[in-house]
C-alpha cells in the first residue's frame, strides 16, 4: 500500500496483575482512514487505545503515532492525537463553550484563534445553539457529541474514540457515525472502538478484530470477509423441489466443487469459485425444479460472531 502509516504498534503487550490484557498487538492504520477496532467487552480495546495515547505504559512493545513513541514522547503524541474516553465527562457547572475553551487553553491555542474554532467545532457537531448552556443540562447524546467537539478543538491528526456510540439511541448513533465518517475529509485519521458491527461497517475503511487481547483479523473491510470465514472458498445454497442423491452426485462432479451437504430441500455447496451458473444448469438438466440459488456473502457479522464464539 502506498498509503502513509500513521498509527503503528509493534508487539504491544500489556499485563495487569499478571493477566495479559493486550497480547503482542500489531496494528497499522493509514493516514486519513477510519479504522474500526472491534471486539467484545474486555478484549483490550480500551487498553490498546490508552497505550497508543501514552496514558498507560505497555509491558513491552512499542506504539507510535506519526513516528513518535507514545511512551517516551507522550507530549508530542498528545499534541497530535485526540482521545475521547469511553465514559466522557465534562465540568458540569461550566458551559459547553467553557469546557472547550479550557481544552483549547491546555493546548496553548490563543483566545484569538480558539473562539472562532470553538464556534466552528460546536456547529459541526450540531451543538451551535446550546454552546452557552451548562453541560449538566445535556443529554447523553449531546455529551457524546460535545466529546467529539472536544477532540476536534485541538485539531488532531489522529483521533482515538473509545466506544463513541455506547449508550446512545439509534438517532444519536447515526449522528455520531456520520460525524466520524466526515473526519478524514478534515485531515483526521480516526481509530474507533466498538462492539457494534453495523456502525463500523458503515464508515470504516479497515477494521481489526480483537479477541482476548489478540488481533485475530485485520485488513480492509472488503478484503477480509471471505478469507477469514471460509479460507478463500465460496458457499452456495441451492434450494430445489426435492433433491435426489443422484443430483448430489452430479454436482459433486462439477470442477471446483469441494463439498456438498444436503439439509432438507437445501443443498449447501462449498466451492472455490462462483459456480452458480454451472450448478443451476446441472440441477435443471437433472429434471429437478430449481427454486433458488444463493451465494452466501459473508457479512462482517459472520466473521465477528465466529471469533466471538471462539473467544
Amino acid at each position: 500500500m502506498g498509503k502513509k502509516i500513521v498509527v503503528k504498534t509493534e508487539d504491544l503487550t500489556k499485563k495487569y496483575d499478571g493477566v495479559t490484557v493486550v497480547d503482542r498487538l500489531n496494528l497499522e492504520v493509514a493516514e486519513n482512514e477510519v479504522f474500526g477496532l472491534l471486539g467484545p467487552n474486555g478484549a483490550g480495546k480500551t487498553t490498546s487505545i490508552l497505550m497508543l495515547m501514552g496514558l498507560t505504559e505497555p509491558a513491552s512493545g512499542t506504539a507510535k503515532i506519526y513516528g513518535f513513541d507514545s511512551t517516551r514522547e507522550p507530549l508530542k503524541v498528545k499534541r497530535l492525537a485526540g482521545y475521547l474516553p469511553e465514559k466522557v465527562g465534562f465540568y458540569d457547572t461550566l458551559t459547553a463553550r467553557e469546557n472547550l475553551r479550557f481544552i483549547a487553553e491546555l493546548n496553548n491555542i490563543g483566545a484569538a484563534e480558539s473562539e472562532p474554532l470553538i464556534e466552528q467545532v460546536l456547529k459541526s457537531v450540531g451543538l451551535g445553539e446550546v454552546g452557552n448552556k451548562t453541560v449538566n443540562k445535556f443529554s447523553r447524546g449531546m455529551k457524546q457529541r460535545l466529546g467529539i467537539a472536544d477532540v476536534l478543538v485541538k485539531k488532531p491528526k489522529v483521533a482515538f474514540l473509545d466506544e463513541p456510540t455506547a449508550g446512545l439511541d439509534p438517532e444519536g448513533i447515526n449522528q455520531i457515525i456520520d460525524l466520524i465518517g466526515n473526519l478524514p475529509k478534515m485531515g483526521t485519521t480516526v481509530v474507533f472502538s466498538s462492539h457494534r458491527l453495523y456502525e463500523v461497517q458503515r464508515v470504516c475503511h479497515s477494521i481489526g478484530i480483537l479477541s482476548k487481547g489478540k488481533m485475530v483479523v485485520q485488513g480492509a473491510l472488503d478484503e477480509i470477509g471471505r478469507d477469514a470465514m471460509t479460507e478463500g472458498r465460496f458457499r452456495i445454497e441451492v434450494e430445489t423441489a426435492e433433491p435426489s442423491p443422484q443430483l448430489i452426485g452430479v454436482i459433486k462432479k462439477i470442477k471446483g466443487v469441494i463439498k456438498v451437504a444436503a439439509e432438507g430441500n437445501v443443498l449447501r455447496i462449498t466451492t472455490d469459485a462462483d459456480l452458480r451458473a454451472e450448478i443451476s444448469k446441472a440441477v435443471v438438466q437433472n429434471g429437478v425444479a430449481l427454486i433458488q440459488v444463493k451465494i452466501q456473502e459473508f457479512s462482517l457479522d459472520d466473521i465477528y460472531m465466529k471469533y466471538f464464539h471462539e473467544g
Binding site: 507530549l75 498528545k78 499534541r79 485526540g82 482521545y83 474516553p85 465527562g89 465534562f90 491546555l106 493546548n107
Partner: peptide, 12 residues
Amino acid sequence: SGTLNRILSQPI
C-alpha cells in the same frame, strides 16, 4: 466524573 483522562490526554 470522567474528566481526568480527558485532561491527561492533552499535551500537558
